[in-house]
Amino acid sequence: MNRQIPLIVCFSFGLIMFLQYFSNHTIARTMNLAILDYWQIIFAFTLVLGVVSYIKANMTKISRGIDRPYLIVGLLGMISMPIMALIWGIKADSPFMWMFENVQAPMASTVFALLAFFVASASFRGFRARSMQASILLGAALIILLSRSNLPIPYTEHLSEFADWIRNYPSMTARRAILIGIGLGSLTTSMRVILGIERTWLGGEK
């Protein structure tokens, strides 16, 4: 029974979502929107589980004395956001938004900016002409990079055209094949899920 009910629910919702895609009827549209709302609401409740897991994991480490000061800062940061939101609200000039704009956002975009360095280190290590495949990878990357670097070299325009041709034909066709494959893989995986053959998410086959 424990597994039967979720499997029936999974099948029914799968069938509904599959069929509504092919209908313009108001009922179908409404159902589609309702289920998309369910996703967000279920996520909202599950977030409680996530936050509890985060607090528990940090508390365990703190009690064992691992990285104590850092983790306390993190916990305080987490708790301070809802408290500030409760007291002053979340309007544009509130302390909550100040924290977002001056603490979270600059750090997050700096983590993103680290990528510039990681791109550099990956370029140094990852593009060695070890084999035919690796040389093609290297060649394609070099052509594109050269075409975009505005170097005062002869035939710049032809290089640019050639780079565009690579992007629009050989590169694009490979990407299409990858997408077609992903589409097929997603399709069969989804079918197994709906039919209840795929039960890993229930914790396995029983």
């Binding site: 369910y38 997603s186 989804s190 899920v193």
Partner: peptide
């Protein structure tokens, strides 16, 4: 497991036609 079934089931249901159309059919015909 019931809400999880709702998410996974409905996700799979919508994935079949959308993945087939956007990832496979469209790319193929182009």
């Amino acid at each position: 497991r019931i809400p999880i079934a709702v998410m996974i089931g409905s996700g799979a249901g919508i994935a079949i036609p959308t993945m087939l159309y956007n990832r496979t059919i469209k790319q193929l015909t182009a």
